[in-house]
Design a protein around this nucleic acid. Structure first.
Lengths: 199, 199
DNA sequence: GTCTATACATCGATAGAC
DNA sequence: GTCTATCGATGTATAGAC
């Protein structure tokens, strides 16, 4: 007979192995690139055989999806736990700075979240929902700073995404582009608020 | 004995086959994505066997490099033949509009030039030189509009690149992001020139 | 659950005959 | 230059023993 505590232990153990697999996948992704993670290498890394991975992930894209969700949760935790000050413009700058730091801290993670390093992989709607929650936090802060127009939100996304993407692609590890984040935020908010005051 | 005209015919023929291969590669890239171009499909498309392609391109990345160079030449031709009006701000807007049109006209080409659709491929210095020449044209126009500071050039690159990249990734074929190009140019040039007038 | 073993399809790339 | 044949790698998936 299977008692509740037995099944509990089983679940725990299963989840622990799953986490070890994910950790190893991140390690390989950081070393060789997200797209270069192979199931055979991954299995060797956690002392399993390649077919055994299918007990934890139904397919390789399910592994990527779990990584995507994990990255989103980390990003969400970063901006949720943070208390952004009452001054709206400063709050936006702090949030952008957190995002820049988040990306610089793990380029593979940033690539998986914001670029498309694996052409055949698209996050499931469930995982993507986590990404949307992050955008919602940003939208809230933006709105308080005077940019509630969806068009302005799109522009802002493109501006910040552009800085980060140029940084990752052309000078990973540096700050040639991202160091201008504050200036771009100021430029953008000045622009938005000027338009509102004198239309 | 090999006469000059015979060797000439041979070169011509070789170059013609090479062009047919490149055309087919672009066709496949537009249909299936840049990364999904396979040498076997490509060979079938031009009625050759897969190993025969190695007579024309030393490796798959050499094919990508030739495509990259071709795309750069087309972009360079677009902005070089154009006569951008004497009003600097208008000229920058026209150049950005040309760039947006260029990208929208062939998403696969834009991806190969401005994103990194094939993780293992990096353009050779020779090909990248063509890309630099395009940037130089843009820098010239930007400088005339008051943005000659390298830092400002970096910011501008990120802003426009961000708009185009968001557009390609999230809504290929639409203009949700790129339609704001003129507004972003104005915002940027206002910002740059304001800083200069009142420091 | 995990293993061994195997299978199928794809891919880039190479050797050697012609 | 082009072919046939082949190599080693990949992702994916399954069967069957333990």
């Amino acid at each position: 007979m299977v008692t509740a505590s037995e099944s509990d232990r089983r679940m725990r153990r299963r989840s622990a192995v799953r986490d070890r697999i994910l950790d190893a996948a991140w390690r390989l992704a950081r070393r060789d690139g997200v797209a270069a993670v192979s199931l055979r290498n991954l299995a060797r890394e956690v002392d399993l055989t390649q077919p055994a991975l299918y007990s934890y992930f139904a397919a390789k894209n399910a592994l990527y999806d779990a990584m995507f969700a994990q990255g989103c949760e980390q990003l969400l935790a970063t901006v949720t736990e943070r208390r952004y000050g009452p001054e709206p413009r400063q709050a936006v700058k702090q949030m952008v700075a957190d995002l820049v730091r988040f990306c610089a801290a793990d380029l593979a993670r940033a690539q998986l979240l914001f670029e498309r390093p694996v052409p055949t992989f698209e996050p499931t709607p469930e995982s993507y929902q986590l990404a949307i929650r992050f955008f919602d936090v940003g939208s809230e802060l933006l709105a308080r700073a005077g940019a509630s127009d969806p068009a302005h939100r799109d522009i802002f996304t493109a501006l910040i995404g552009g800085l980060i993407s140029q940084q990752i692609s052309n000078e990973p590890g540096g700050d040639r582009w991202t160091r201008h984040a504050d200036e771009v935020v100021d430029m953008f908010l000045d622009h938005v608020n000027r338009r509102k005051d004198s239309p």
